Amino acid sequence: MSSSSHGSQSPAQLRQAIRRGEWNKETSGLAPGFVQVNLVILPASDASDFHRFCQNNPKPCPLIAISEAGNPHVTALGADLDIRTDVPRYRVFHHGELVAEPNDVKDIWRDDLVTFAIGCSFTFEHSLIENGIAIRHIEQNRNVPMYRTTIPTTPAGNFHGPLVVSMRPMKAADAIRAIQITSRFPGVHGAPVHIGDPALIGIKNLAQPDYGDAVDVQPDELPVFWACGVTPQAALAKARPAVCITHAPGHMLLTDLRNSDYSIF
């Protein structure tokens, strides 16, 4: 599937292409108008503590859906959706260590695995674009830059760690408008958590993101930071569960849910 043709594809068509191995890149800009989600997949023995971690940290971890243990078909997200195959790239961790980044997880799926679908800022990007606000990483065909901050999350059990943020550079007027627009979407991170000096939240160098790709920031632009669904991956590194599966940063699960379902006004 070429980059020129993917824009008109429905989420179901895109998931099928991902399942066939025809798309293994980032998903920013795909399926405009539909919700994209981050994934965290854990054994049932760890699921209760992680659920509380999400409840304690709704800004970076807004829960969209939770599966039954062992069930890879979360029909609330899409009738034909298969958690094991429908993400372009996964990450597999053993005791907190990254051991693989496969394109599907069929061979390692277990009957005790619970899937958490967490809201993603890619969901509100379409609304920003509709309002004339350019998204730099989409313009430059890159993954969104993401950074660990010095802002702590609220722990739950063994799950704790720093808030991770995504960054989009904007002129001041666009940043103000972006606050207004994204405030309508609290279920997918909502308004920014910080604007301006990255050092105030512990980011030393915008050109060296912890996840994703660096993007150009012009002299007349402000960096605008949103809470990011990669935050759980930082907490998982601290908790070190025996097994954990996530999406690779920027490689989201495309759902059949509409952005408008998550707009509060």
Rank of each mutant, 00 (worst) to 15 (best):
V114G: 12
T123W: 11
P152V: 11
D112N: 11
P102S: 09
I133F: 05
H137G: 10
I138Q: 11
P102R: 02
P102A: 02
R148P: 03
R142S: 12
I151A: 05
D111V: 02
I108L: 07
D107S: 13
I133N: 08
D111Y: 08
H126G: 02
N131K: 02
T153P: 15
W109H: 00
D107N: 12
V144T: 05
P102G: 08
T123I: 10
R136K: 09
M146H: 06
S127F: 04
F124M: 04
I151V: 15
V105F: 13
C120L: 14
K106C: 14
F116Q: 04
V144Q: 15
H137I: 01
M146P: 05
S121C: 15
F116G: 03
A134L: 05
H137E: 06
L113R: 08
P152L: 06
F124N: 06
I151R: 15
I135H: 02
D112L: 01
W109K: 06
F124W: 14
N141F: 09
R142V: 04
S121N: 14
I138Y: 01
T153R: 06
M146R: 10
V105Y: 10
K106I: 10
N143T: 07
G119K: 15
E101V: 06
E125K: 05
Q140Y: 09
V144D: 12
A134F: 07
N131Y: 00
I135S: 00
H126T: 12
K106R: 15
H126S: 11
N103H: 03
Q140C: 05
L113D: 06
D111H: 14
E125L: 07
F122W: 11
I133H: 01
E101Y: 03
R136L: 02
T153D: 14
D111M: 08
H137L: 14
N131Q: 04
E101F: 07
G132M: 09
E130L: 05
F124L: 08
T115G: 07
I133Y: 13
F116R: 05
G132L: 10
S121D: 12
W109L: 05
G119D: 14
E101H: 03
G132R: 00
P152I: 11
E101K: 08
F124V: 04
P152W: 14
R136S: 05
I133K: 09
D104F: 07
V144I: 06
A134G: 04
E139F: 06
R136M: 08
D104A: 06
S121I: 02
L128M: 10
T150L: 13
R148K: 15
M146D: 07
M146A: 13
R136E: 12
S127R: 10
P145S: 04
G132D: 08
F116I: 09
A117G: 14
G132K: 03
E139R: 08
F122Y: 08
H126C: 07
R136I: 01
T153E: 09
R148H: 10
G119F: 14
D107L: 10
L113S: 07
S127G: 02
D104P: 01
H126M: 03
T150E: 15
L128T: 07
I118K: 00
I133P: 04
V114E: 12
Q140A: 14
Q140N: 02
D107K: 13
F116T: 07
R110I: 10
H137Q: 13
M146E: 13
K106H: 07
C120Q: 12
